[in-house]
Design a protein around this nucleic acid. Structure first.
Lengths: 244, 244
DNA sequence: TGACGGATTTCTGTATACAGAATATCCAAT
DNA sequence: ATTGGATATTCTGTATACAGAAATCCGTCA
């Protein structure tokens, strides 16, 4: 495993703290005492502080005027707006890819991912959810970079890190979302249409499709938001959502 | 002036370092030694480090694999993409404001700003540039918040902080940009059309107008990018642009 | 019984010290 | 003269110490 274990303390802190927050370990709005946290994570305050800065820039924490941090809370509109914005930015990536022409290698890679998704969902009775989650994330990752713009890719990734805005956020809600399998099939159809539009240089169509694709996530969120609260342990970030 | 002087060390470091970088004091790609910088800024390494983290998340610095930071460099495409993306996000703010209906108070405030811009540019022989810069920034600030979405506003502000992506980035290039006064008038016309579309609930029109409005900045950038390099001292961030 | 004020305690913000890694320097050998 | 290697130096990452501010708690007074 080479140097995979040479993980820096701030990465350790960032991963650990983000996980704790996303899993809802602290209530939304809870203050985060630095000393206690640093002891729990087994690191000193300095790298923990850096991690908190990073999570603040991600929008998971907010500084309090009197000093210190607390975990941010999100209402239903925040989630929907973040999903909408992801659709807009991914739509821009798709449009620019169509207008400018996408890197053939990346297009091939994207098509390859879609083929693998086809396989994962081929048997309606035993869909490979784990594979789907990973492949879906990979597809959106490639899509964000398809315009060949570091700026676009960076911001798309950034927005995907907002709570529940990720393309994979709701893929663990199988038993709550009605016709979940059908929803996956539909999403896959949109994936293919987006790629087709890009390779046909149909910028406006590619953009509209990517936006509409993100709307699927809003639909799923609508089902999950008032489902069994125990789901919050499996859907990272769901615990941070407060009623609006 | 109350507590305006109670500025924290990390704010001091952030402002100072950002200013130095934007003014091109270090060449693009230069490494930033922490000890020397901390001495120059008159602070210790800890808050300086926080400031560097923040500037990294803003995209002005990038971490080097071997440790430490260097100032990022931007090619022409990066700048154009950042401007395009600002247009897209501001366009989304405008569209959502139109679709959802904007807060009347904010609309009034925006119109008030436009009235003041009218006054600032009323005399073609002596346009009040300083006033225009401030008012223009204010208008775009209000526009970003007009959809009533904290997520949208936050991301719009964030993108405006990217080098040369700000709505006011090129407003100091009077003597380089041809027909600069005409350009200001045209921009003001677009401002008014955007507000009109929003209050008419014309979402698609509002979005298209805001996007096109951002294109003015790309036009101005095209003039400035190969103008007298001495301009770089007056246009913050221009010094970070490298030939593509 | 409630509220106000002071003291205590906790917490954050900042500075500094230390260790390990990365980089530069210098000398020798080909 | 150039290249390789070993040493020395600089720099970063991390931990910890300290001071000042914020919050809490308790006692006293109305």
């Amino acid at each position: 495993m080479g140097d995979a274990d040479r993980i820096s303390q701030v990465q350790k802190a960032t991963l650990g703290l983000r996980g704790m927050i996303m899993s809802g370990e602290f209530g939304a709005g809870a203050r985060l005492p630095e000393v206690a946290l640093s002891e729990r994570l087994g690191i000193s305050r300095t790298p923990l502080r850096q991690a908190m800065d990073r999570l603040e820039s991600e929008g998971l924490l907010e500084r309090m005027p009197s000093g210190g941090c607390r975990v941010a809370s999100f209402d239903l509109d925040d989630i929907n707006d973040a999903i909408e914005l992801r659709g807009v930015v991914e739509g821009t990536a798709a449009r620019l890819a169509a207008e400018r022409g996408a890197d053939p290698e990346l297009m091939t890679a994207a098509e390859q991912v879609l083929n693998e998704i086809d396989i994962a969902v081929s048997d309606p009775d035993s869909v490979d959810f784990d594979a789907y989650v990973g492949l879906n994330a990979r597809f959106h990752e490639i899509l964000a970079g398809l315009a060949g713009s570091a700026v676009i890719r960076r911001e798309a990734e950034r927005i995907s890190n907002l709570p529940l805005a990720s393309p994979s956020a709701f893929l663990r809600g199988q038993e709550v979302i009605p016709d979940f399998n059908a929803s996956l099939i539909r999403a896959q159809g949109q994936h293919k249409a987006i790629l087709e539009a890009i390779s046909n240089r149909e910028g406006a169509r590619a953009e509209a499709l990517a936006r509409e694709h993100a709307r699927l996530a809003r639909l799923n969120f609508a089902f999950l938001k008032d489902a069994d609260p125990r789901l919050a342990t499996r859907i990272p970030g769901l615990a941070l959502v407060t009623a609006s």
